[in-house]
Design a protein around this nucleic acid. Structure first.
Length: 272
DNA sequence: CTAGGTGCCTGATTGC
DNA sequence: TGCAATCAGGCACCTA
């Protein structure tokens, strides 16, 4: 499941080729992948050139010379892949953007949860306003501690709330809580100042490290960058999908529970 | 405002 | 062995 580090890896690949390229054609193979009026999607894009490739939380934000933005969310199984212009659409290809340099950008998404849309500046600002702070730009301790204080919910599902902090998903929420030695079931409003500091530092460190390893390629999700290359961070996971294996710190058994409807992995001995 | 539940999807896994 | 039921997951949307 692409989270911040995987999306960042994809965006860095896109930033290498997209700026300056012009979209010469758009093909939509699954209508629901496109949010908004479907008949307006292609016309808003064809003839437009990319000005930038950026990320906001787990959203890919591609700037256009029209002032609009092409946004893409990979959700669970979405993948962006640069292909030669003639490459056939695969069985899971939902959208193809044809470029003016003999390449095409394919949006493959087996489970059809991924989304794309064209947003005007105001709509982009609205999306931006709904999302919490960017963990790689330094998390503001005071504001987040204040928000934690008012939340009577387990800390793990709160980390998955994109309005609290943007970019965390199931993998890195579990890894950050492990790195901070905090029990995922702890209620957010019971964390003391020291624990909040440990947690936010862990969130920053875990994500920055995973970006350095170009994301996590694990199991059935099989994350790939735009060139089809896998990440390396799966070799550096401490708890995620390591149920029954040894905790790297104490050697105890990693446990798996369900929390807020999601599988959660942790070391009951190290995380209290 | 917060907290909790459901639907969207389909390949892999589990249960009988 | 074979088939049906369940699971996995992020997020929009709904209710209380």
């Amino acid at each position: 499941m692409p989270e911040l580090p995987e999306v960042e890896t994809v965006v860095r690949g896109l930033a290498r080729t997209l700026p300056g390229r012009t979209i010469i054609g758009v093909a939509v193979f699954w209508a629901k992948t496109v949010t908004g009026a479907p008949q307006e999607y292609g016309p808003a894009l064809v003839g437009r050139s990319f000005t930038a490739a950026a990320r906001r939380g787990k959203w890919i934000v591609l700037g256009l010379d029209s002032g609009d933005s092409l946004i893409i969310h990979l959700r669970m199984t979405g993948r962006l892949c640069l292909q030669p212009a003639g490459a056939p659409a695969g069985p899971h290809t939902r959208v193809v953007w044809q470029l003016d340099d003999g390449q095409a950008l394919h949006f493959d998404d087996m489970r059809k949860f991924g989304r794309t849309a064209v947003l005007g500046p105001g709509e982009l600002a609205t999306l931006d306003g709904k999302l919490g702070p960017e963990p790689l730009e330094g998390l503001e301790r005071r504001a987040l501690q204040e928000r934690l204080r008012r939340r009577k919910i387990a800390i793990k599902p709160l980390l998955l709330d994109q309005t609290f902090v943007a970019g965390l998903g199931n993998i890195y929420a579990d890894e950050a809580l492990y790195a901070a030695r905090i029990d995922p079931r702890r209620l957010a409003n019971t964390l003391n100042a020291g624990e909040v500091e440990r947690l936010l530092t862990a969130v920053e460190r875990v994500l920055r490290s995973a970006v350095g390893y170009r994301g996590t390629t694990l199991g059935d999700e099989q994350f790939r960058d735009v060139e089809g290359q896998a990440g390396e961070n799966q070799r550096h996971l401490s708890v995620f999908r390591r149920t029954g294996q040894a905790c790297p710190n104490c050697g105890g058994s990693i446990e798996r529970i369900r929390l807020g409807g999601r599988s959660t992995h942790f070391c009951p001995n190290c995380q209290r």
